Amino acid sequence: MKAYLSSRRKYIREAISGYSFMMPFIISVSAFIIGPLIYAFIISFKDFSFLNPAASRWVGFDNYIRLFSDATFKRALLNTSIYSLFVVPIQLFIALMLALVVDSDIKGKTFFRVAYYIPTVTSTVAVSVIFLYLFKADGLVNIILSKFGIQGPAWFNNVNFALPSIMMMAIWSSVGNYMIIFLAGLQDIPVELYEAAEVDGANKFQRFFKITLPMLRHVAFFNLVMSLIGTFQIFDQAYVVSGGSGGPLDATMTVVLDIYKTGFKDFNMGYASAMAFVLFFIILLLTLIQRLLFKEETY
């Protein structure tokens, strides 16, 4: 009995010590993440403004129903979907190719790894400003095009070219991040597999499709999910390029930018919260679909 009580007291002391170490994290997460999420979910069912919280009123699902007839939100969702549809596969393909290059035996591969990764750690605002100058009507890109007899458009001020310009900027600035993850996956593949395949007469393409791609399946799934989440949350580039308006003619309006404008410019925080949760469920649904397609295993 004494041994049991002593063991029990030791277990309780260890539990108290463990939770004591965890308490700062639990408190901060509860105060800055879980609490605000619950509060945002509640006010998504209200006509709510932080300018006059006392005047808020319960509207039920009206905010969510209103989204189906909101032309700006539908345009923002369409822009974001198009942006994601093009950016995700292109940046992952380029990232994989770059990872293969820097994983090979080329000279100066350390330099190339750093060079490809630097845009990732550069501020998105700084990158956006740089691209604004490059893609001006009289910017460097149009000057180069004029050398070939091509009249370049005013990229970010043109309805047809504004969103593609942001796509190019996003691919250039984020591809290095996914390259590093692919590179880690490539270096985790046992060399013996390639040696055995080479002995069996497999060429480079066969080794790539039969060994490299299958072994990178979990890494590719991770990159795909992270890339999809990142593209659906695009805000900085669209805000800087359009000056926060989403123009021209809502050509660069994204869902997160629409949420920002609704909540912090129109001060309709209830409706903005409803937009945010719709975006959350869209991303969750797409992630689950990808999981099924990749048949991702549970570890």
Rank of each mutant, 00 (worst) to 15 (best):
Y260A: 01
L285I: 10
A55L: 04
Q237N: 13
A251P: 01
G35I: 00
V121F: 05
A54I: 05
M169D: 03
L279N: 08
L213R: 10
D62F: 02
I26G: 04
A274P: 07
I144G: 09
R207S: 14
A202R: 08
Y64I: 06
D105P: 00
F135C: 11
Y83L: 08
G152Y: 03
S81V: 07
M269V: 10
V241N: 02
D250Y: 11
A15F: 09
L292G: 14
I94G: 04
G243M: 07
G60F: 00
A55D: 09
R9P: 01
Y4H: 08
T212P: 12
Y299I: 07
F205P: 00
A196N: 11
S146V: 06
I234Q: 14
G139R: 04
P153C: 03
K136W: 01
K74E: 00
Y64A: 08
Y194W: 11
K147G: 12
F156D: 03
L140F: 15
I229G: 08
N52Q: 02
I12L: 14
Y133W: 14
N177W: 15
I282S: 09
N158I: 01
I34W: 12
M167W: 06
G201T: 12
L285R: 03
G139W: 02
N63I: 01
F111V: 11
M226R: 14
F209R: 15
A202I: 03
Y64H: 01
A162T: 02
A54S: 13
P248R: 02
V125N: 04
L249S: 13
L213Q: 02
Y194H: 10
I26W: 03
L5T: 12
A197H: 09
Y117V: 01
S165L: 03
A137I: 12
V141L: 14
I33V: 13
G230V: 06
T80G: 05
S174C: 09
A76K: 09
A170F: 10
I181S: 10
S242M: 05
A184D: 04
R75Q: 12
K204P: 14
G246S: 06
L37Y: 06
I150E: 05
E297A: 15
F294G: 11
R57Y: 06
S104H: 02
K2C: 00
A95Y: 03
A197L: 07
G139L: 04
T212K: 13
L98F: 11
G18C: 07
A274M: 04
Y64W: 07
S44P: 11
I38H: 02
S165G: 15
F232E: 07
G270E: 02
Y19S: 09
L249D: 11
D236G: 12
E198R: 15
S49I: 00
F148H: 10
F232S: 12
I143C: 06
I94F: 12
L224W: 09
G244L: 08
Y64V: 08
I283W: 09
V87N: 04
S20F: 14
L51I: 03
F93C: 08
I289A: 15
F50T: 06
F25L: 13
V125C: 02
Q91F: 01
R57L: 00
R8S: 13
T287I: 04
I189A: 11
F131W: 15
I166E: 03
G60K: 01
E297F: 05
A115C: 08
L216H: 11
F73P: 03
F294W: 05
F135N: 09
I234M: 14
